[in-house]
Design a protein around this nucleic acid. Sequence first.
DNA 1: GACGGAACGT
DNA 2: ACGTTCCGTC
Length: 608
Amino acid sequence: MKTPAETGFAFPEWAYKPESSPGSRQIQLWHFILELLRKQEYNDVIAWQGDYGEFVIKDPDEVARLWGARKCKPQMNYDKLSRALRYYYNKRILHKTKGKRFTYKFNFNKLVLVNYPFIDMGSGRGVPQSAPPVPTGGTHFRFPPSTPSDVLSSSEELRSPGVFSTVARRMARGSVSDCSDGTSTNSELEEAAGADERAVGADRAFRGLLAPRLPHESFFRFYGGHPNPAGLARHAPRGHPEPLSPFPVSPLPGPGGLLGSTLSPALSMTPTPHLAYTPSPSLSSPMMGSHFSFNPEDMKHYLQAHTQSVYNYHLSPRAFLHYPNIVVPQPHRPTPEKPAAHHLQGPPMPLPLSQQPGGADDGHPSPFKFKLQPPPPGRKQREAGSSLAASSSSAHSSMFTGPVTGSAAGGAPPKIKVEPVSDLSEEDVEVTDISEEEELNQNSEDEEEGSSPPLARGGRPRLLNSRGSPFGPPPPPHIHPEDDPDEDEEVFKTPATPPPGSLAFPLVGLKTEPGAAAAAPVSPGGTRCIPLKLRFKRRWSEDQRMEADGERDEAEDKKVRGEGEEDDDAGGRGVVLGLMLPPPPTQRRASSELQRATAQLSLENAGC
DNA sequence: GACGGAACGT
DNA sequence: ACGTTCCGTC
């Protein structure tokens, strides 16, 4: 049936909104889990294991304790924590690895990979035992090493770039407190503090790229250079986790306010793609803008890396950037040697699916259609219902309708999505085709997206894309404002709100022409680069869209669909990719640059 | 151990 | 929305 691609689905908005979003500002459990996973110190407590994204809680009580400490819930225990984890099943953030105790698996496809292709997830570094998690979708996803050493290793010496540092600061904003009486658990420190701002050209480029995507900066923070690598990590076995708080209090004085404002927008970034492109915060944000600069070379670098990743992980071709000026590297890049040295990120990753039969993971590729989220069941309704109230239907709708659209910063609220659940219908629709047309159309259209939403998309989703070859002539840049509405229900919602200050207009104005740099309105700093940026953005948009399409594989909730299949990941992706990407990836690793970039990112957040 | 409903809190 | 707390069921 439907290939995953057909429905365009992107990640749920919640994925992007971590603390920054208004709705949920606190650290979320899955973020927390990731955080622990990325730290070696907690290796004895929780660690990656098995397939990509799969982790095992070695010490449930301890994890619970840490979580409780973080949330200031001393009563926390594994039973409760696991309940929370189970809620993630429906959200598709996690899956339970059946048969293995305390073992769960992240659906990075949706969550992160797509958005953060550069990140490497394999915590492999510290985790010898198991294979590092392999990212399915996109690339190496490794969370940034918390320890400096990691950083170093991954990249020779990267330090945090100025640009991001800023971001980091913002993140720092965190909160702190309350329970920190010492209970605060983990703390690793991740201070971003010392970042020195040295940006290497390439790095910068990456960052720049990344930036736009970062859903919330907070999630991944830039890594500041730490002076002493040795110090931290390591010990902290569960016994006393607390010495440092992982989430630095807020070391950085930064311009919280400033950034803060931008924060919210961050969310939008990712989502944006689909529809109209709203200016991504990053771009818009002053800081970003100023630092952002794309050099063709950098871009190239990036592209290459990206390309590889794409191939390696079966991303959709669209994932490739279509930049006029840049030549996309072929999939098989002669890069046989990967930096073997880096254990860190270079985990051997099994390729997912398509090519690799080894799908170790659960592998249950069953395509199923699904809706994003099941309508929330009425809880009490039951009772109430007994008496009378019958119609509860309304409930679900609310979910999607979110305020999101409102983001319209400027003015026109793009409300794209109207129907919450309409997916269904869409599902029916098939998508297979790919028409380039859309792309073309989009070109012109995109531009306006900001101001005008793609409301009417022509109609259907044609998600898929591409003709198969990624390499081909670079298609004209396009974004689709249109992807399907459905696809992202959630996603759409998140249109970002442009940062109050600067960008508002860009939205509207965004028209970017390929080529016409001048046109770009954008921000302060790098005007000249803009065109590229825009292109990137566009690309991103598509990417995401694509990804989404591809990815929808995931399982949905049983509730919604039916049950049957559960899993996910691989299957979907594979399918999608399969369509488009034939080429055998020889190598999986992204170029070192990626790694570097990766290294720089890091998680962060403030805890309670 | 895992699952998921229900009520409740934020 | 995102858990937290309880709790019954498998």
